[in-house]
Design a protein around this nucleic acid. Structure first.
Length: 262
DNA sequence: ATGGTAGTGGAACTA
């Protein structure tokens, strides 16, 4: 059985209902994981998604901020939702497909502007969130699992437009990269995107603030697809749909895809 | 060092 999965920080699922449908029609991933839905679950516009074949959903939401959803053409059953770092935020949902694969969908805290937990509480919360993710996967090692989402960290030098310039910028600081590596190690996660696309600059996010995001190309790879060792070898065809960053009323993130043969 | 844009919700917060 082959299925394709996409992850996309949508920055309001209600405002961007049209381009979510555009992605469904143009690319038709079997499973679409969204972050920053910024909507209570009961106000997500599901009818149009269902008409396009996405009849199954597991989600967490809140008013105005955060929010994660898995929209699926395949039946999916909710299996977990954790409040790491006890923030009271809707940042995690996990579901299981009928083939036994578990999908974790995360929206990791962005962490504020200053990379110093002494002066910026949000940065401390981000590190704590990652530490609790690590402990969660260390306590119960995942199997046949996929982890996706906006992890708000670009770990590699070629995941950012300028490594040296971003070393003190939140999302690319060494301490964040170390915390993310600890999560990856605890769960035996393989970075599927970088298993497939081993070399070269690769981004999934471009700031709204750039005059011309495409020409400036000052991007970062904040959105990730990971899989446990037991199924990572079946993954292929990873890609970032950069074109979606240029669609009508775009998100500042582009969707990231991977296909699994299981 | 600063300010640049976008979403929610109708000011101030978050990213």
């Amino acid at each position: 059985m082959t299925f394709t999965l996409a992850t996309w920080n949508i920055n309001s699922v209600r405002l961007r209902e049209p381009i979510v449908q555009q992605l469904m029609q143009a690319e038709a991933p079997d499973v679409l994981c969204l972050q920053e839905t910024k909507s209570p679950v009961d106000k997500i516009p599901l009818d149009g998604f269902a008409e396009l074949g996405y009849r199954h959903i597991v989600a967490r939401g809140q008013k105005g901020y955060n929010g994660v959803a898995i929209l699926s053409r395949l039946p999916i059953e909710e299996v977990a939702s954790e409040d790491f770092a006890s923030l009271g935020h809707a940042r995690h949902i996990a579901g299981r497909l009928e083939n036994g694969v578990t999908i974790h969908n995360f929206y990791v805290p962005a962490g504020g502007d200053k990379p110093d937990r002494e002066v910026n509480e949000k940065f401390g919360q981000k590190l704590d969130y990652l530490t609790e993710m690590r402990d969660y996967f260390a306590a119960t090692p995942p199997e046949k699992s996929i982890l996706v989402g906006d992890l708000n960290i670009a770990p590699r030098e070629d995941d950012v437009w300028d490594h040296k310039k971003l070393l003190k910028i939140v999302s690319h600081t060494p301490i964040e990269v170390e915390h993310l590596a600890a999560v990856q190690e605890a769960g035996n996660w393989v970075d599927v995107t970088r298993k497939d696309i081993t070399e070269g600059k690769l981004y999934s996010w471009w700031s709204y603030r750039a005059k011309d995001w495409d020409a400036a190309d000052k991007g970062r790879r904040l959105d990730h697809v990971w899989a446990t060792q037991d199924i990572a070898g079946s993954a292929h065809s990873s890609r970032v749909l950069r074109a979606a960053r240029g669609w009508e009323k775009p998100s500042d993130h582009a969707p990231v895809f991977a296909t699994f043969d299981l």
